[in-house]
Design a protein around this nucleic acid. Structure first.
Lengths: 216, 216
DNA sequence: GTAATATGAATGAAAG
DNA sequence: CTTTCATTCATATTAC
């Protein structure tokens, strides 16, 4: 086998996995990562009320003082919040050009904003997307011909831009939506979390897994 | 355990990993598994004194996990949402050939997925388009807010106040981590656990992980 | 501490 | 295929 992308450690024995198994592993890790984050959150909520000095964890290794330095890379996954300085720049750019900046422009902006705090291109991208979408919505909420118009008009304008015959039909059949149970569960209990270990649902997006050095 | 678990699935695309990389993956999962168990234990210990099945009890969705995230008016769905079963199949197909399937292939896939819920060929097509585009992007550092590498040297001693009032977000550079938790726990705190994610130590032996269906 | 709001992020669909 | 839009989800913040 060649060591094209997977650097071979000297041509020694290797394991071969199917893509399926590969995906399985990735998913598994994603599940754990997600569960861990949620558990951490739950724990924070609880420990805010009482301190568990006497917890018996039964694992002596966990007392390792080296790990004491709190590294909040995974556990504190909270959403990005633009700094005032960053926001100002963003607003300024937005004002100049109402359109979402191109890919290269995003990079530049990110680079600039990075001087004022942690930020990623995705953050910038999302910000412009949201900013634009919301400013548009707010505008259309004020301008439209105030309310009471003919009901007939409504019927006419009902989703008619499509030209393709086959399309998403809003009719979601009469099937009970029980299958949706794990799509973006808002808040769940320990039991649900543990259950997730066997039935992964909505987890950390696959493209974000690299942060864990999955295949480093 | 049987070695058959690493059977090659019919000679289809396979990934090749070195033993080193394999070990890395195992270790990674071990870390998560261990942390999860520890966290669950901690949580149980805490919630034993405090009936607290979940956080934010006020959340209306929490009442019934089955209805979570699908709280919409009966006919309000306007865009297709893949069922977990469908997603699994799609992901599986995607990893086999991360190129957009041909016209006929789309038909077949659609037919298969239709057994799990309403779906159209357009849905399938779009899904692959998006999946591919977004996996390609996979930009860097999607997860902001890491350690405070940003010392925020630029104190807002100058007029940097936003033009928008709601942006008066409190400056966080002075507040490392909330001190209202893990005051003096002799054993371990969340921070140590989280730190483990990056510096794995002693974890659950990987051969004991099968209970989670590690390799399907 | 519960409800309302603002906003970052995720994602199906459509446009280019 | 790539980029953009629209909608929705989830959470941080604020008001009551």
């Amino acid at each position: 086998m060649e060591d094209g992308k997977f650097q071979n450690g000297g041509g020694l024995g290797v394991k071969v996995m199917t893509d399926e198994q590969m995906e399985m592993l990735r998913k598994q890790i994603s599940v754990y990562a997600t569960i861990c984050e949620q558990l951490v959150e739950m724990h924070k909520g609880l420990s805010a009320h009482q301190d568990f000095a006497g917890m018996r964890l039964g694992n002596p290794y966990f007392c390792d003082p080296l790990l004491s330095s709190s590294v909040h890379k995974i556990g504190s996954r909270q959403r990005w919040t633009p700094k005032p300085a960053q926001l100002e720049i963003l607003e300024q750019i937005f004002k100049q050009c109402n359109a979402t900046p191109g890919r290269q422009k995003i990079k530049d902006i990110t680079k600039e904003l990075a001087q004022h705090g942690q930020i990623s291109e995705t953050n910038v991208y999302n910000w412009f997307q949201n900013r634009r979408a919301r400013s548009k919505r707010k505008q259309s909420a004020v301008l439209p011909n105030s309310g009471e118009s003919e009901v007939e008009t409504e019927i006419e304008s009902f989703k008619e831009k499509k030209t393709k015959p086959e399309d998403s039909q809003p009719d979601e059949d009469a099937t009970p939506v029980s299958d949706h149970m794990y799509l973006h569960s808002p808040d769940i209990g320990i039991d649900q979390l543990v259950g997730k270990m066997e039935s992964p649902g909505s987890c950390i997006p696959y493209w974000q897994l690299e942060q864990y050095d999955l295949f480093g």
